[in-house]
Amino acid sequence: MTTHGSEPDIPSPHEPIELTLARLLRIGSFIAAVLIAVGIGTMLLGKEALATRLITAGLLALLATPIMRVITAGLIFVREKDWRFACFCLVVICALAAGIYLGRVHS
């Protein structure tokens, strides 16, 4: 219980995981928002084919963000030698990959 409350218990040479992940998510949502916004603008101008492509690209960027987030978290835990949590991330990644694979096979 002594670890409770005090500022970073184990000093780390790296920035906290929260800030790294926040930056990753901000970049991902920014790219997605810009692509989709430009896509909707293009749609209103009547260029449907280009609009579809831009919006799809934006949606894919958004989709990739949480997956990248799990992978990045896993890599951070490996760097911190926190093997237990690195394993937890690996379990999540495998389950996601299997889910995607099964879903595509069945569709």
Binding site: L60, L63, T65, P66, G99, G103
Partner: peptide, 17 residues
């Protein structure tokens, strides 16, 4: 949601418009 969304994308259920 991401793993579900990938499947919907592959099926063509995601309508960009």
């Amino acid at each position: 949601a991401a793993s579900g969304a990938v499947v919907y994308f592959a099926r063509g259920d995601v309508k960009p418009m």
